[in-house]
Write a protein that binds this DNA or RNA. Structure first.
Length: 336
DNA sequence: AAAGTCTTCAACCGCCGGCGA
DNA sequence: CTCGCCGGCGGTTGAAGACTT
């Protein structure tokens, strides 16, 4: 038994809406409200199907729609949410007041997606292309700030293998350790994003997830310059604990398992900055910080191959640009 | 100036799940 | 349990404008 189409195609208008049609729809909804979209066009005197009316109203005529260019903050929020939720446009739209899922979807496909690709980032996985990564640069000075969020065993292994590279043993090990390091970073990123999403008051503010000097130029590669937890870890921890974790949300997240929600083992409240990593930076203590520690990225200064893209006033990199599943790569979990 | 190409985004399509009969 | 209706969702299309040659 076939389904009856949502509307009869015969005699019903399609294509762009005229001003007159818009006005009819607006007038009707102002008078009677919306609901029962199937009957609405008939009652409103429109030669449209209900679906078309609903779409026109929700995507264009609704009075609370914010039209115009997306703000910097909105774009960062979209990237952040997309890295966690994927193509759940309605879920993303629900956190961007005045923006519709259709609008966000279009903006993603026409602007953000292309930009990420230009930057060598897979817009689906938010991962960097492997050939743009290089372990020696990851281990370079500025990147050590992020070491505070990593598993010390991984760092040891990374350092060990890095030294082996000097013996011309650059091989798959490098890629493996790159994955490990990236995953550690990403766990931190997801923890931060999760904490923010689960804390509705104050409302989610993507600017809290970013900070300055997101990336630094390093020869021909892109690397995060730092991951800066501006909240003390203790504060973050309390934040996370006070939030309600729903099963639904957990299942929506990428497959990080329960590690993402592990209780952080905080030895002290720490604050450090990329420009001066020695400030309040106690390496032994921070190295003991597990992967679930908070992290923060920013996007003020992004460079690719030595070329700033600031002139676009849009330099975005997802917080989840390092997205790898170690278990997928190695088939082991002993490092985590 | 004209033709061709690219970009944008409103609108459509088909599918899905919830719900009630 | 099945079926149809309805609203919602994500993917896709295509017209129109912008840009390039």
């Amino acid at each position: 038994m076939g389904r009856i189409p949502c509307c009869e195609k015969n005699g019903l208008k399609r294509g762009p809406w005229t001003q007159e049609e818009d006005q009819k729809l607006i007038d009707y909804i102002h008078k009677h409200g919306y609901g029962n979209w199937r009957l609405l066009p008939k009652n409103a005197g429109l030669q449209r199907c209900g679906k078309s009316c609903r779409l026109r109203w929700t995507n264009y005529l609704r009075p609370d729609i914010k039209r115009g260019r997306f703000s910097f903050d909105e774009e960062e929020t979209i990237i952040q949410l997309h890295s966690i939720l994927g193509n759940k446009w309605s879920a993303i739209a629900s956190r961007l007041p005045g923006r519709t899922d259709n609008e966000i979807k279009n903006y993603w496909n026409t602007h953000i997606r292309k930009r990420l690709m230009r930057m060598g980032i897979d817009p689906v996985t938010h991962s960097p292309r492997l050939d743009l990564l290089d372990l020696s640069s990851i281990l370079n000075s500025s990147f050590y700030a992020s070491a505070s969020m990593m598993n010390p065993e991984i760092l040891k292994l990374a350092a060990s293998l890095f030294s082996s590279q000097e013996n011309h043993q650059i091989d798959q090990n490098q890629q493996v350790i790159s994955h490990l390091v990236q995953t550690q970073i990403q766990d931190s990123i997801h923890q931060e994003a999760y904490n923010k999403l689960m804390n509705p008051n104050p409302p989610f503010d993507s600017s809290m997830l970013f900070n300055q000097s997101h990336f630094v130029e390093s020869s021909e590669n892109l690397y995060p310059s730092s991951f800066i937890p501006e909240f003390g870890f203790q504060q973050q921890h309390e934040h996370a604990q006070s939030s309600t974790i729903t099963d639904d949300f957990v299942h929506q997240l990428p497959s990080y398992g329960n590690d993402l929600f592990m209780e952080p083992h905080i030895s002290e409240t720490s604050t450090f900055h990329s420009n001066n990593i020695n400030q309040n930076f106690d390496l032994p203590s921070v190295l003991s910080t597990p992967s679930s520690s908070p992290a923060r990225l920013n996007s003020n200064s992004t460079y690719i191959n030595g070329t700033s893209i600031e002139d676009e006033t849009e330099s975005y990199v997802s917080n989840n640009m390092f997205e790898f599943q170690i278990s997928d790569i190695l088939g082991v979990n002993e490092f985590m």
